[in-house]
Design a protein around this nucleic acid. Sequence first.
DNA 1: AGGCGGCGTAGACAGTGTCTACTGGCTCGT
DNA 2: ACGAGCCAGTAGACACTGTCTACGCCGCCT
Lengths: 212, 212
Amino acid sequence: MPDEDADLRSRLVAVGVHLVATEGMPALTLREIARRAGVSHGAPRRYFPTHLALLSAIAREGFADLADRVADTLRTGGTHPRDRLMALGRAYLAFASSRRGMFELMFRHDLLESNSLGLRETSLPLFTVLVDLVAAARPPSEVPPPVVAGALWANLHGIALLWGWGSLPLATGAGEVDALLRAALDAHLGTDPRPGTDPRPGTDPRVTAVAR
Amino acid sequence: MPDEDADLRSRLVAVGVHLVATEGMPALTLREIARRAGVSHGAPRRYFPTHLALLSAIAREGFADLADRVADTLRTGGTHPRDRLMALGRAYLAFASSRRGMFELMFRHDLLESNSLGLRETSLPLFTVLVDLVAAARPPSEVPPPVVAGALWANLHGIALLWGWGSLPLATGAGEVDALLRAALDAHLGTDPRPGTDPRPGTDPRVTAVAR
DNA sequence: AGGCGGCGTAGACAGTGTCTACTGGCTCGT
DNA sequence: ACGAGCCAGTAGACACTGTCTACGCCGCCT
């Protein structure tokens, strides 16, 4: 329930965040948001010149949320870069599955393409975190860390998508997705050289945190 | 220019294919398609109960096109599974970038979620091709080929997406994307053991089956 | 010949995003 | 203290969209 006595601008994006979480992305109508905010359908125009601008503001909130979750996960996670990367990946996938509507909204092409909205800038700090972790977790190589981080992110995002709409026909369980994630890490960073870490997929009890 | 004297059903999807290629996905309005097909806006309802059904038919055409391209690429490509996988990846990325609107349409969540449309079944043969190639290209391991293929596909799809809207801040050139693709292959299959042009002995490319 | 069934038309309806004309109330300058 | 101006929000119009329903028209079959 969004704050009642705040300026309309923040109330609108709060309503939007609440709405996309409960009703899904197609419910993010300009008029519906205005309705739930208790104003007429023309009111948002004072603060957002177009519908996409409002959606972008809501999506920015989503990026902030994701960044917070990743930060929390990294704070409570292990110290080894490998573990931190695994935690980051899990947080990413958990976000994609629990906040599915918001995730869709965040990566809508027509939002990202309108570069005047600063969405790319919003998603960039997350990427730098990933780059740093990759640089720390990987033995030095000739291929620069940002490329590896990009590939890893692409992999992560692809897993989130394909898993999201169930088009990974064989790896549908949460544990299998975790295996997929671990495989991705092994793939891009080389297999984990640490002894005592069981590389067998599916045996990690922390996996269940990802399930919807 | 779609065929003039064909049954309306195929004319509609032909118009849709042409339209999404020239004007982009938001132009795929039911009324606009009907307009370009020279019929009234209610006519498509005879053949497609809803707008999404028509879009799904168009998307199916896209999947068929992608399968054909992949088949062509595999036919003219090298014989080593590694080369074939690289060609497949390039074809996938080329499709995603040249037929961008169609690519968006094909992977729209609301199309994929309506499972009664058989889209998942349409995209499955492509996946099996990938699985076979992965099985042939990779040394035997305890992690099953479908999982590796899934991870590879996720990686591929993620690259296509992130590259598509330019959110891979550092790898924007076509050559760099190719490097990203090669890195993905190295990552999921292990680094290419072939030194130069020397084909690896013992691994015969036994996969020639193609989709459709 | 006549009925009939399918194909396409035309219009209504609710809903959308954008734009414009218009208030009501608040602040601010004099 | 008081009128001017301005600004947030209202209300309605407009061109769209997708869906639904009632209606003709043409050809086919018995």
